[in-house]
Each structure stands twice: as C-alpha cells, then as structure tokens.
Design a protein around this nucleic acid. Structure first.
Length: 161
DNA sequence: GCCAACGTTGGC
DNA sequence: GCCAACGTTGGC
C-alpha cells in the first residue's frame, strides 16, 4: 500500500531562514531542524513523508504570508542540532540513543507569483478551518488537500494543482 | 514593543 | 496529576 501525498504548512521567520534562503541552498535542500515542540516533533517523526507538499509560511513580520511551496525529500530522522552543546538548539536531554527531536529534509519547489497573506487566508470562506487560524503557535501544521489547492491557486500556480 | 495564547516545567 | 508560574510565539 502506498501512502498518498500529504500537505503541510511550515513556519519560519524570514530574518532567520526565508523561502529564498532555501532556494539558494545547494540543490535547494535544507534540513528542517531546531523544532522544539512535541506536537510538531510528532509530525516530523511519524507523519511527514518524502513527496509531501509544504506551504512555506513567513511569520513574525509585518505581513505574514505563504511565499511558495517546498517538497519533502527525506522523512523523519534524528535532529543532530540537539546534540551540539555550542548550538542554540542544544537540548541536554537528547542523546544519540534517545534523540527526542527529529527533522526532515525539504527542497525548494515553486515560488508563488504573489504571496498569499494571512489576512487573505482569514478572509477566504473555504479556509476558515485552517489550523493556522486556530492553533497559531504550532510551527508545523497539517493542511488538507483542498486548502493546499486553494492556496496554491491564490499564489498564482494554478498549473501546479 | 506589547501582549494574548498556549505549551512546558516543576512544586506540591 | 493538578495547576500556577514561566517562557516563547507571533500577530498587531
């Protein structure tokens, strides 16, 4: 049995790591590490699979918005940044035997022709159920296929749906 | 920069 | 296992 493709929304503050930063990485690939929330960790460890679609969301700015799409290229594996005592993401509870925290690898896919703002998402009648509007602090959230299609179309990538 | 929301910690 | 205190996120 093959799992069908799923969809997610990943948040990042662009001053820390932006969608265009992802595009400048070799092959456009970057590990999505440093997540230190248990529910988001569970998604990373258990649910997010290669091939899944990602809405790359910019938070913490004047006009929060989805900037484009990315794709998962490697499923959950231990987040080594938790093991580095020098790093910001260090967690002394994490060990190689018991990693606690997980990451996935993501690849830059398509920039939106126009960003889809939080305000626009709030206004859209078919997007009122989005996790983004209810669980504002969760940095990795599931997105339904319908929500994915609406937002990708709003972003000007209708041919990608 | 403020502050509400909310996840996490730790005392009991 | 409850819950108050605390820290962080993130919109505004």
């Amino acid at each position: 049995m093959t799992l069908s493709r799923r969809f997610w929304l990943f948040k990042s503050e662009p001053s820390c790591f932006s969608f265009s930063d992802l595009g400048k990485r070799p092959e456009g690939v970057e590990p999505w590490d440093g997540v230190r929330n248990f529910q988001a960790r569970n998604f990373l460890r258990d649910d997010i699979q290669p091939g899944d679609g990602i809405l790359f969301y910019h938070s913490g700015i004047y006009r929060p918005a989805v900037a484009g799409t990315a794709i998962v290229v490697r499923g959950g594996y231990p987040d080594g940044s938790a093991l580095d005592p020098e790093g910001d993401a260090y967690d002394p509870r994490s060990t190689p035997e018991n990693p606690i925290w997980y990451r996935v690898d993501v690849r830059y896919d398509e920039p939106f022709v126009r960003e889809v703002t939080l305000e626009e998402i709030k206004r859209h009648p078919l997007l009122s159920g989005m996790e983004l509007l209810r669980r504002s602090r969760l940095s990795i959230q599931p997105v339904t296929k319908e929500e994915w299609e609406i937002i990708v179309r709003l972003g000007g990538l209708s041919e990608k749906v």
